[in-house]
Amino acid sequence: MARYTGPKTKIARKFGEAIFGDDKSFEKRNYPPGQHGNNRRRGKKSEYAIQLAEKQKAKYTYGILERQFRNMFKKATSSPGITGEVLLQLCEGRLDNVVYRMGIAPSRRAARQLVSHRHITVNGEKVNIPSFQCKPGDVVAVREKSKSLEAIQNSLANASHVYEWITWNAETMQGTYVSVPQRLQIPENINEQFIVELYSK
């Protein structure tokens, strides 16, 4: 797969925010990457550059490739509701993202690996497709044999975020994707309108 596996901090510095979660390296060097860093004179960005940067930020945040992202945009366009909002809701509904939001994995990249390695079940069935779209009411759980995995135990112990559209039962190690999140409930700092404008050209 053509998944990005390079340095995460470099990408975070490019966008000026820690899009991959807490990052000590980013905090130390909170300026653009490259030889000249802070001193590089950057002219005013064009409208296209701003829109493109926003799309790239969304893709890197959720770990989605261009073709997948474009297909999601087409699906969002044909769905009822505000296109940009629906696009982000589709991103949030991906199984790897739901696993990350539940605290089973410390990052989306780690969540993707847990799903791919068959450690996660949806409604009692093993699912190993990270892009699987969860529907409201779906029960996402850690597979019985995987409950003792140290990586999962550590992640759950350090999980502190609570999201209104997800419930989690620590005893049974399963949660429910209760509803599709509203835009205000999605914490990601993404201006989806720029993405819509870019793809609409």
Rank of each mutant, 00 (worst) to 15 (best):
R29W: 06
H36D: 09
E171C: 01
V115K: 06
R101D: 03
L90G: 00
T167Y: 10
N189H: 14
R42F: 02
S155K: 05
L52T: 08
E54S: 03
K126V: 15
Y48G: 02
K59A: 05
N169S: 13
K201C: 03
S25C: 02
V115F: 00
Q51Y: 02
R94E: 07
S46N: 05
T172H: 08
Q174W: 01
I152P: 07
Y199W: 07
S148P: 00
A151P: 00
V98G: 07
A141G: 15
G16Y: 06
K147I: 07
V127K: 15
Y100P: 01
S78Y: 10
N38L: 12
Q113I: 10
V99N: 11
L156Q: 14
G93E: 10
M1P: 05
E17T: 14
W168Y: 12
T9F: 01
I195Q: 07
S46R: 06
E192Y: 13
V162A: 13
P187F: 10
Q174Y: 01
T167M: 12
G21N: 09
T9R: 10
N158T: 13
V142Y: 05
G137C: 09
R67T: 14
A76M: 11
A18W: 05
T172G: 01
K8F: 11
G81V: 10
E27M: 14
K126F: 09
R67W: 07
Q51G: 02
K14W: 11
P7V: 13
Q133D: 02
A12F: 06
T167R: 13
T9A: 12
Q193R: 14
E125L: 12
E144S: 14
A141I: 05
T176A: 11
W165S: 07
K24Q: 13
D96G: 04
P7S: 14
